[in-house]
Amino acid sequence: MKFALKVWRQHDANAAGSFVDYEIDGITADMSFLEMIDALNEKLLLKGEDPITFEHDCREGICGSCGFLINGLAHGGQKATTVCQLAMRFFKDGDTIVLEPWRAAAFPIVRDLMVDRSAFDRIIQSGGYISVPTGGAPEASAILVGKDKADVAFDAAACIGCGACVAACPNTSAMLFTAAKMTHLNSLPQGQPQRDARTLGMITTMEQEGFGNCTNHGECEMVCPKEIPLEFIGKMNRDLIRAAMNGQTEANVRVDANGKMVD
């Protein structure tokens, strides 16, 4: 198979970027999308041109490293599929394919198709955990978790933090990502003591990092490789109201400059 590629090339966050045209031949249907770029990069290097920078690692859809827009769709638009698992058989011989990095103010471009998603880590730092110093845990079977709750927690915890939800959202909202972690921890009995503080801490940081709000487009759900459902954003909003009803507000849950909740 043969393809024409238009690839966004940008040297760093401050440099101007532009699309550059490439042609690649000899691609087979069972190659993955990233293997197609590998093949192109080998050619570029041999010609003395700068290979395309992109993030990737496990290549089995679980580490969350890879991801960019393919013809405007995050991860290429195949159901429950990351770029690394996207096979070239989904494209037609001779297609023109446009590659762009995630576009979001909160995800500055590092180079070409690689962006900086460290804002996600800072959202987790603001409450995306249950405080359990090592060694202090009770016997595991002392904590009962109903199968229904455990299943919801798992569905939410399946998020791989790739950032596709942000890239797909017209508002570059990180609500699906934030709501997924919050639903995971807030659904479990272990997560209850810090529930309200977690909710406010994570939402505060999410806003501070420059992510937009949710206006219910649902694009995030469509591109999510782990099929995290939109309803978790509803759960997050309910948890926010719950925190307020409990007398917790962003003012009296003490959150420091980094968004870290202070106990």
Binding site: Y129, I130, A140, I143, K147, A150, F154, L188, Q190, G191
Partner: peptide, 12 residues
């Protein structure tokens, strides 16, 4: 014990 307390969603 440690992982359950952290909220790791093991099968139940």
């Amino acid at each position: 014990d440690q992982c359950v307390a952290q909220g790791v969603p093991f099968a139940r």
